[in-house]
Amino acid sequence: MVKRTRLDDESCPVARSVDAVGDWWSLLIVRDAFDGSRRFGDFQRSLGVAKNILTARLRSLVDNGILDHTDRDYTLTTKGEALFPVIVALRQWGETFAFEPGEPHSQLLDRRQHRPLRPLEVRAADGRRVTPDDTEVRKLP
């Protein structure tokens, strides 16, 4: 078996984030938790993943403080709920680039207005929209 490279001591926030939730099963578990899944069987039915893989991913999400686990339920923590914009961004990217025109797919709707969400945008502190060309990475001491 290939040993997984750990990134939890990297100085890059993206690397540390990927270390915590970058596994595709983990992100799909988080997605399902936002959609209301709470029990092991709910996640397994939705994902069709082997029990041993699901057990390991759920344990990792609990260990990383993304999910809480009680006797029967898994629930998102505040840290887990903070992943909502990440899941929305992945969903919106997928809606734009992962389907052929007219191909059926699911869509995230505003519960109050029953309409799709506006595309997420990255904004500067002053409110203006920023692109990759408008940003730089600076290491903190």
Score class of each variant (00 low, 15 high):
13 P>Y: 13
8 D>P: 08
105 H>Y: 07
100 E>G: 03
52 N>I: 14
71 D>R: 15
128 R>D: 00
13 P>K: 11
99 F>D: 00
84 F>I: 08
53 I>T: 15
91 R>I: 13
61 L>S: 02
121 E>Y: 01
70 T>R: 10
28 L>K: 14
43 F>T: 08
114 H>P: 00
44 Q>W: 10
21 V>K: 08
61 L>F: 03
14 V>N: 03
110 D>F: 07
124 A>Q: 03
110 D>H: 13
98 A>M: 13
76 L>M: 07
25 W>Y: 12
135 T>A: 01
28 L>I: 06
25 W>M: 10
72 R>H: 11
61 L>E: 01
130 V>S: 01
60 S>M: 03
29 I>V: 15
97 F>W: 14
71 D>V: 09
69 H>W: 07
51 K>H: 06
91 R>S: 12
53 I>P: 00
50 A>L: 10
100 E>I: 05
99 F>A: 02
77 T>Y: 06
119 P>R: 12
115 R>V: 10
97 F>A: 05
58 L>A: 03
12 C>Q: 14
73 D>A: 11
61 L>V: 03
96 T>M: 14
111 R>L: 07
127 G>N: 02
123 R>I: 06
21 V>H: 09
30 V>W: 10
19 D>Y: 13
52 N>E: 05
74 Y>E: 05
122 V>E: 00
110 D>K: 07
110 D>V: 12
57 R>Q: 09
16 R>F: 07
77 T>L: 06
113 Q>I: 09
117 L>F: 08
122 V>L: 11
122 V>A: 06
87 I>Y: 10
25 W>P: 02
57 R>N: 10
128 R>C: 02
104 P>A: 07
126 D>E: 04
10 E>S: 15
100 E>L: 14
102 G>Q: 04
129 R>Q: 07
30 V>Y: 11
14 V>M: 13
105 H>N: 05
92 Q>F: 08
69 H>K: 15
95 E>I: 13
42 D>A: 08
86 V>S: 04
73 D>H: 13
102 G>H: 08
25 W>K: 08
66 I>N: 02
130 V>A: 01
62 V>G: 03
